[in-house]
Amino acid sequence: MLEGKFEEASLLKKVIESIKDSVKLCNFNCSQSKGITVQAIDDSRVLLIALKIDSGSFQEFRCDRDLVLGLDLESLSKILKQGNNEDYLTIIAEDSPDSLLVVFEDKKKDRISEFSLKLMDIDSDVLTIDDMEHDCSITMPAYEFAKIARDMKTLSESLQIIITKDSVKFNAEGQIGSGSIILKPHTDMEKPDESIKIELNQPVVLTFGAKYLNDIVKATALSSTVTIKLTDKAPALFEYRLPSGYLRYYLAPKFDD
């Protein structure tokens, strides 16, 4: 049996809102040691999502036997919208479940709401992702990266990222013209999450589809910072830290035709 209680429903709500536009169906793998893990790839096979909600993200977590919950995220999202952000949220499943029980408890009122979501058998490829060495890594405020991704998409369907040891440059060239944004590393002592940190083994220039970057920044509400790891001619990793766990996106780059 699985029983996981979140202190606030908002965490799972934000996670599902971050991924449901990229992948519609996915398997939630549940185990006592790893909590909940998900690996899912979008239909175009360009963006991969790797989610880990450790048991530490839950107020209470027990999973007697490893379970796979096949979920339609659009449906789960509809059910999660029934509860308030501050409610306790408990998810419950039997050992061979055909449905997931979702329970919201209002902390002030005596109100408990229960929903049952039908589960599905989902056949999905699992990809092997080794811990890669990266050429460079940038950590920056998540909202700032989101603004760049959204703004630059209005100029071009591609966004070029150029990292050197003393700057990161975002470059867009489109039909109406072009634009670039240059950020320099700095440390904000009072608000560390406002800092921009660049770690560099070697400079990297990569181009990504603006559409996919805009899917990724839907996770902005999850974390105050985002870490972007880039390697020449390889998929990029965008990581949003959870209180205990992470949401990672792997995005394949665009290459010269």
Binding site: R45, T207, A252, K254, F255
Partner: peptide, 14 residues
């Protein structure tokens, strides 16, 4: 022009 590549060319199936 730049061409979008698939993740499958980088990651193998388990």
């Amino acid at each position: 022009t730049k061409k979008q590549v698939s993740l499958m060319s980088f990651f193998g199936k388990k």
